[in-house]
């Protein structure tokens, strides 16, 4: 006997609510101006251009530190999203209960290596991260960022993360 599939709006509402709670719950993401778009389980992080992201006003170019931060944010969001997926889908995790005291434990960065390929232009940037390995304790993530052309990356990075103890 097969179960009827859930109505599409129920699925979308659940996933979008979780993503929104994850992104809006972290003040630094608001500071940088990061938003996340979703297609199924695929995430694209968007760094909304703002004058405050500029490093050298003469060029002008995005600050290398802002670029590094954006890549790290995108990696952690992707890793958290993968980690929470099953509990989100089963309904075990309710994003409406998230607050400063009750927020999922997030992965912690062990190391992060950024490769700057070209200068970031003063406009929106996009990033997608791929979890290459995720074990019980450690994870390895690769992330790529681009602006006008998906094939012309302006930065990429690899990071290792310590996964939170999920029984605690």
């Amino acid at each position: 006997m097969s179960r009827r599939p859930e109505p599409v709006q129920v699925v979308k509402q659940r996933r979008d609510a979780m993503l929104k709670a994850l992104v809006h719950g972290v003040p630094y993401l608001r500071f940088l101006g990061v938003e996340v778009e979703r297609r199924g389980d695929e995430l694209t992080c968007v760094l909304n251009y703002d004058e405050n992201l500029i490093g050298n006003p003469m060029l002008p170019a995005l600050h290398g530190g802002a670029t590094a931060a954006f890549l790290e944010v995108a990696s952690i969001i992707q890793l958290s999203w993968s980690m929470l997926w099953d509990d989100m889908e089963s309904g075990a995790l309710d994003p409406t209960t998230f607050n400063a005291e009750n927020f999922p434990r997030l992965p912690k960065t062990i190391d992060f290596t950024v490769d700057y390929l070209r200068s970031g232009l003063p406009r929106d940037a996009y990033a997608r991260a791929r979890v290459n390995r995720s074990g019980r304790r450690y994870a390895s993530v690769h992330v790529e960022a681009w602006q006008d052309n998906r094939d012309r990356l302006f930065a990429q990075a690899t990071g290792h993360f310590l996964m939170p103890d999920r029984n605690g």
Binding site: G64, A68, I110, D111, F112, T113, V114, D115, Y116
Partner: peptide, 8 residues
């Protein structure tokens, strides 16, 4: 910056 590696 060409590359930057950070250890936390």
């Amino acid at each position: 910056t060409i590359d930057l590696r950070i250890d936390y």
